[in-house]
């Protein structure tokens, strides 16, 4: 089923994925198609390349989206001649007040993609958009804010980087979606990873008054394996900024959940999982999911005509 347009309309949606080929760009395209059907115009941003595309030879791996006239997207200067959507240049973040204040000394430079300077474009008509994303996560909020100001469009789709949930820290107001691809060989691992991811997005928010009630440790930065090992045994609660600050293996996250309470200062808005099954029985897959994780699936393969486990 195509995801509902009102999941995305007038908000920032960040799509991340568990593993390579998990279908996040496919899901983002499905979201865009849904929004277009509802007559919405969007700001579309791709945040990074999977696996680090070669800037010269990797052009073929640039995300390609079909846009409508009025949509706004981020591309690279060198891709402009390849656009057939009558591009109207709106901003060059590295050279305008969007990011130029900081771009002089910043390393890596701001407002740049793997393909060179980023350019914000409004599509003058329907056509093809080749997307490029900022090399730095911290460019995202300023670029999105500027795109919204310049275009008056409030719907933003961010095709996030693979396994880079750190982007959620840069966009705390975004709704996070997670795409998952499960095939015959790896579906049990996919179930496990969804369980861990769900545990992270549903971490309870730390209530300051609880600090007086139980022994806790509030971490200013990342929770790494090393740091976790050094936390005194009598500390029952561990507090981090948000889920993106948990840098533990899946096993460690689950162990932590069973032995202590992990809290976040800032909660993530989770839109749900988009699951693509390949050679996997839908009923069996859903039975393997914990009920709360299953309930968090917002969309089964958006290109399938029936819902797995429901259709005959």
């Amino acid at each position: 089923m195509l995801p509902a347009s009102d999941w995305f309309a007038r908000r920032i949606s960040l799509v991340t994925g568990l593993g390579s080929g998990s279908g996040k760009t496919t899901f983002t395209k499905a979201a865009l198609a849904s929004l277009h059907r509802a007559g919405e115009r969007c700001i579309i941003i791709s945040a990074g390349f999977e696996g680090g595309t070669d800037p010269v030879n990797g052009v073929s791996r640039v995300p390609v989206f079909q846009v409508e006239g009025g949509d706004v997207f981020l591309t690279a200067a060198r891709l402009l001649p390849l656009l057939d959507c009558a591009p109207v240049i709106m901003d060059v973040p590295s050279r305008t007040q969007t990011l130029a204040d900081e771009s002089q000394q910043a390393r890596p430079p701001r407002g740049m993609s793997a393909l060179g300077p980023l350019v914000m474009v409004r599509a003058g008509r329907e056509g093809v958009a080749l997307l490029a994303g900022p090399s730095r996560n911290d460019d995202l909020p300023r670029i999105i804010q500027r795109a919204r100001e310049l275009s008056g469009i409030s719907t933003v789709l961010v095709d996030g980087s693979l396994d880079r949930i750190s982007q959620i820290s840069a966009l705390p107001e975004a709704t996070l979606f997670c795409s998952v691809m499960a095939d015959k060989a790896g579906w049990q691992r996919a179930v496990h990873r969804m369980t861990v991811f769900h545990a992270l997005v549903t971490l309870p928010v730390w209530q300051q008054q609880a600090a007086a009630m139980e022994a806790s440790v509030e971490l200013p930065g990342l929770l790494t394996s090393e740091l976790y090992g050094s936390i005194a045994a009598n500390r029952v609660a561990v507090v981090v900024d948000d889920m993106a600050h948990v840098f533990l293996s899946d096993q460690e996250v689950l162990a932590l959940a069973s032995q202590r309470r992990l809290h976040v200062r800032r909660k993530v808005t989770f839109g749900g999982f988009c699951v693509v099954l390949r050679d996997v029985d839908g009923i069996r897959f859903r039975q393997a999911l914990r009920p709360d994780v299953d309930a968090a699936v917002c969309c089964w393969n958006p290109y399938v005509h029936e819902t797995p486990g429901v259709a005959a």
Partner: peptide, 16 residues
């Protein structure tokens, strides 16, 4: 009864 709804392709059962 197939609805593309702007999608590039659809996945349907083998029979269909």
């Amino acid at each position: 009864g197939l609805e593309f709804m702007g999608r590039e392709f659809l996945l349907v059962t083998h029979e269909k």
